[in-house]
Amino acid sequence: MTGQSARQSSPWVLLSLLAIDLALTAGCSGKSSTVAAPYSPPGTGSTCYAKALPTVGEGGLAWADTLSMARQKSLDNCIRYAGRSGGTPNTCKVVLAECKP
């Protein structure tokens, strides 16, 4: 007897779980994302950026208020990231540097 009652209540349990899942999913679907785009400037005043790359390993991208600060920060980042990724930090050099108007 218990085998039959368990089989009869199974569809109701599954339907209830499905309804709860759909309700929770529908509640989250209308929310907008607040995640920033990758490599976006950290502040509104940072208009200059620079990218430095080593011959092997990961490079560094940096934003700053002036071009010289961006170049130095990207070079420092390149040295740090190249060392962590098993690259060659002593070969880092700035390959791109510019300021947005």
Results as ranks from 00 to 15, higher is better:
M1P: 11
M1I: 10
T2P: 10
Q4V: 11
Q4S: 11
Q4E: 11
S5T: 03
S5N: 06
Q8N: 15
Q8K: 15
S9E: 05
S10N: 09
W12M: 07
L14C: 09
L14D: 11
L15T: 07
S16E: 11
L17Y: 07
A19T: 13
A19E: 06
I20N: 08
D21K: 13
L22G: 07
L22Q: 10
L22W: 12
T25Y: 04
A26C: 09
A26P: 05
G27P: 08
G27H: 04
C28Y: 06
G30N: 10
G30S: 08
K31I: 15
S33W: 02
A36R: 13
A36Y: 06
A37G: 08
P38G: 05
P38Y: 04
P42R: 00
G43A: 08
G43E: 08
T44Y: 07
G45A: 14
T47R: 07
C48I: 02
Y49C: 08
K51W: 01
A52I: 00
A52N: 00
L53D: 12
P54Q: 02
T55W: 09
T55V: 14
E58C: 05
E58D: 11
G59I: 00
G60T: 03
L61M: 13
L61F: 11
A64T: 01
D65K: 14
T66S: 14
L67Y: 02
L67T: 03
S68W: 10
M69Y: 05
A70F: 01
A70P: 04
R71G: 01
Q72E: 14
Q72K: 15
Q72D: 11
Q72N: 14
Q72C: 06
L75W: 05
L75C: 02
D76S: 08
A82L: 05
G83R: 01
G86D: 06
P89Y: 03
T91I: 13
C92P: 00
C92E: 00
K93C: 13
K93T: 15
K93H: 15
V94R: 04
V94E: 02
V94Y: 00
V95S: 03
L96V: 01
K100G: 09
K100V: 06
P101A: 04
